[in-house]
Nucleic acid binder design. Structure first.
Lengths: 349, 349
DNA sequence: GAGTCACTGTACAACGTTGTGATCCGGAGG
DNA sequence: CCTCCGGATCACAACGTTGTACAGTGACTC
């Protein structure tokens, strides 16, 4: 373990700096010298001490990714994409879980743990618009998600309102008029729930459908269990409905479960559409229609933007907001009605 | 950003070492001095440079976790548990994805990227028993998974054979005799697939049921899609069967999908049991019976073992193998038959 | 033959921190 | 009055690396 440049230098009979030069591909080295050094490196099994290199260079080659919970499919898949994108740029990723808790998110932003990384990709869930200023941190930060807009940092996110509207209109186009909505956060204006609810309402309004409180299923958590609970609540009210827009796929799966328990057929009696396009959605029974929010693009863009901030700092300009394209993915739970190929009819952006 | 001990020391009018002492809770500091220093720290917003600290101390406070793919539910949930366990020990986690590819796994083991971490939790998938010796690396390493046994490192894993046998016996206890198996890796002896197949065969044998090649659905990948494909293959053979043991939950979900497409009712016509107890399993329709392999315990134990290796090195003794307890979780897809509470009947270990 | 230049290699300092030992001081003990 | 001790603080070196500045060594130009 303790093999250093010194050891290599001694064995090769050169100075420590020459070894360093060999490793860093400094051009002016005599082939004979290079060979001697390389042989010594191989013989001793030397590997550079990245900590020392980081200290010297000011760069660690690592970025941090903070998400609420990796056990949530959307964030697991996001993390998978981020790690892959980072690797392509030669970066490694340190993953933190906040549990979506505001205090932990605040603490994380202040934590010196990130002195070990070059920057942070932060998927906030507990923070709100009023917390925008705490994002003004002395290290590169790229915000993900939809809790804070127009903050002091770069922001990579999705078109929640437009996508939710498209999802709802997908149901309307299929002739559904009584569309329940699951996963609402009451009183929320921004945040995924607030924005997606807005898209839902816009779609109703655009088609002259009245908004009906009785079709709203609130649920703070967005797990399968809470989706099932919210759905059961709506079912218990006895109001008629023929479709469900769930604020994410996980909720949708819970809702489908509750519908089937209640003897409703999907999509015959009730069409269901979700949001996120998690892998799982295409293998459920029935397969889940959903919104593809452009996860890959978000991951790549977020890593790219962060890297630019790391390398160029404020020289890269003021804070940017980058929006992913989205698409309606029509599957069994809410098939497209007309024979126009769904891909053509539904892709937006 | 560039606030260092020097800056704090200058402002507080003390030496840099005194500031360091304050930060590290060195006992002999006059209260007045401590206060001066703390005020200077607050005023400048100083946070320690962890890279420098790491270089000096030889410890980074980070561990690496290498898994095949975070988009696979089991590994996402494992990572979630590992990160939580690490945090409880004051560690952060750097996550790598290998794609289950042998070459990438080999490269990862040699990579100096881990000089930035204190040790590695390695969930191998591409390596095999013959690669055991490459695990003999000059840094603390704890192996997860079931690709290599009796290697040169600590190993935290599950009781694959016994658990698979218990899963199969759960089906047999319900009166099923024609039990298909999905996700087999042909020719594999160890590895999850090999071991779980062995458990399956042991159960059949113990109950005098002949092993039938026609009921075997091979599949290298363990995704939903491959589960569905393997199941369709078995269905296409036209052989009768009344149950399925899937080598993991994801396969089981794919298999259930294929069964329902083919008009078979679960569990009436075909009972299904999986393996892993991913979160999702309890919310599918029908909910999935499965094996709970003790994921939390594995995560906690792996982190604890790695930490012990980091702190005590070889003084902690020779390589250990640690096995998690498991339990049969009976749900709708393969309910327990007798009225004995499943929890009592099924918990093993 | 002197001056210039490209090439090759070196010595030294620095990144920010902490361990080691030294120093200074006041008070207790002889 | 001197010694000794422990509290409080500091100077220095070191962790392993790389940037800067510089020193040789030839070869080439004029």
């Amino acid at each position: 373990m303790a093999v250093t440049l010194h050891d290599v230098a001694r064995l090769a009979g050169v100075s420590i700096k020459t070894v360093s030069n060999v490793i860093n591909d400094y051009p002016h080295i005599r082939p004979a010298t290079r060979e001697k050094v390389e042989q010594a490196i191989a013989e001793l099994g030397y590997t550079p001490n990245l900590t020392a290199r980081s200290l010297r260079s000011g760069r660690t080659g690592a970025i941090a990714l903070a998400v609420p919970d990796l056990a949530l499919a959307y964030f697991a898949e996001l993390a998978a994409s981020v790690i892959a994108a980072a690797e392509a740029s030669g970066l490694v990723v340190l993953v933190e879980q906040t549990g979506g808790d505001r205090d932990r998110e605040l603490e994380l932003l202040r934590s010196p743990r990130f002195k070990m990384t070059d920057g942070l990709l932060f998927s906030a869930l507990g923070l709100g618009q009023d917390d925008a200023e705490v994002l003004d941190v002395p290290y590169p930060l790229v915000l993900l998600g939809e809790r804070i807009f127009d903050g002091p940092t770069d922001h990579v996110t999705m078109q929640n309102v437009a996508a939710a509207r498209a999802a709802t209109e997908h149901l309307i186009a299929a002739g559904r008029r009584r569309i329940a909505v699951v996963g609402v956060h009451e009183g929320e204006v921004i945040g995924s729930a607030g924005l997606r609810l807005r898209g839902y309402r816009e779609a109703l309004e655009a088609h002259g459908i009245a908004f009906d409180e009785a079709l709203v299923g609130p649920s703070m958590a967005w797990h399968r269990e809470s989706g099932a609970r919210a759905m059961r609540e709506i079912l218990a009210r006895g109001v008629p409905f023929d479709a469900v827009f769930a604020m994410n796929d996980t909720l949708a799966l819970g809702a489908m479960r509750a519908l089937l328990e209640a003897g409703r057929r999907v999509p015959d009696d009730v069409a269901v559409i979700g949001f996120d396009n998690i892998d799982e959605a295409q293998y459920t029974v029935p397969s889940l229609s959903t919104i593809d929010p452009g996860r890959e693009w978000i991951a790549n863009t977020a890593v790219g933007t962060l890297l630019e901030r790391i390398e160029r700092g404020d020289a890269a300009g003021g804070p940017r907001t980058l929006l992913a394209d989205f698409a309606v993915v029509a599957r069994e739970s809410a098939p497209a009605v007309d024979p126009v190929p769904a891909a053509i009819a539904a892709v937006v952006g």
